[in-house]
Amino acid sequence: MRSEQKQTKKKRKWLRITGIVLLLLVVGAGAYGFTVYKSLTDAVSTMHQPIKREKSEKRIEEVTFAQQEPFSVLMLGVDERDGDKGRSDTMIVLTVNPNENSVKMLSIPRDTRTEIIGKGFDDKINHAYAFGGPEMSMDTVENFLDIPIDYYMQINMEGFEDIVDAVGGITINNDMDLKVEGAHFPKGEITLNGAKALTYSRIRYEDPRGDFGRQLRQRQIIQGVISEGASLSSLTRFGGIFEALGDNIKTNLTFNEMVDIQKHYKNAGKNIQQLTVTGNGQTIGKVWYLIVSDEEKLRLQNELKGHLAI
């Protein structure tokens, strides 16, 4: 009897800490057992990539997850090419507040003109990754939003379709009829496999909203993956999910930190609020940029600071 109780306790423990939480850090999925645990730890070991970065002046003391302190993550969607570091065509800032049980998700347009910290000149914000990897991206976004960026999560966009397929596909609500590359995405509820999700996430010129429409679709796909991953009741897919995550995600979060996040922040993932950067297009030196006004930056900074309780 005691052995059965111990096994049940172990199952409940892993029910709390496994699943697609590795993608957005706040959502758990049901799984247990040694095989799942081994797959999970192997994936995290593969994903973990520490960074060399000076301590941020905007974060005096490190976040303590056990005390349920709000924190932030910069998600970088990178198209990795042979012989080229690539650029972060997708930049999403997540702020997580367990006291408000909410996550704010801000997409930063890749053409946003701002100072590239470490280079000393203004350029498109997504160029920070090409110049200095996740460290320079974190520093530049931190300066742009005037908030601490505590962690990063880099996703290989080419491999993102593997993640979508690993959860069995996703269902999203498409707000615009779109056709691209021989694919048709009708308005309304649609179900996407990995390849179609990748195509859908990259649509830009066929949408009159341009990059803003593309950002919306990327957020839809991320939320779709979270929803599908969190709803899985079978163990059969978790090996594939962990393998896909391990192959395509890099982060400076450790396994223990992920466990703490799931333990203390899991309810926050049930309320994801999407924010948008607005600005005006302007050509400078024959290059098109999105110019974000000081008033707009202040609006975003105040909202995120409030959510981070700073």
Rank of each mutant, 00 (worst) to 15 (best):
H48R: 11
V225P: 00
L76K: 01
D175S: 12
M105F: 11
L275N: 14
V141I: 10
E181Y: 08
E257I: 05
Y37D: 06
M136G: 06
R202A: 10
R59H: 01
Q67E: 14
N101I: 10
Q262A: 13
I116K: 01
T18L: 15
R87F: 12
E61K: 07
Q154A: 08
G239L: 14
R202Q: 03
V73K: 06
K85E: 15
E181T: 03
D177S: 14
G269I: 09
D294C: 01
L192E: 03
E100K: 15
V103F: 11
I60D: 03
Q220H: 07
I222Y: 01
F71S: 05
K55Y: 00
G86Y: 12
E135H: 00
Q223S: 08
D84V: 07
S234P: 04
T46M: 13
R59S: 01
D207G: 11
L145K: 02
F131W: 12
V277K: 04
G120L: 08
N101G: 03
D260V: 00
L308Q: 11
A195G: 12
L235V: 15
E4A: 10
G168M: 04
V141T: 01
A309C: 11
A183E: 12
Q67K: 15
G239N: 14
P186I: 15
G132T: 02
D150G: 05
G213Q: 12
Q5I: 13
D260C: 00
S227K: 15
V164I: 08
E80W: 09
T278V: 09
M1F: 13
L76E: 05
E142L: 00
L23H: 02
F160Y: 10
M153C: 13
N173G: 02
E80C: 11
V78F: 09
G132N: 12
S107F: 03
H264V: 02
S72T: 07
F144S: 02
K270H: 12
A128G: 10
I272N: 05
F212E: 04
F185C: 03
S56W: 06
G224M: 01
H127E: 13
H184Y: 11
G132P: 05
D211C: 04
S107E: 07
G306F: 05
A31E: 10
E189M: 10
E228C: 04
N99F: 02
K263I: 05
A195W: 10
Q67G: 07
A130V: 10
T171Q: 12
N143Y: 06
E61A: 06
L15G: 15
E80A: 15
L300C: 08
D211A: 09
N174P: 05
I172K: 00
D146A: 10
K297A: 06
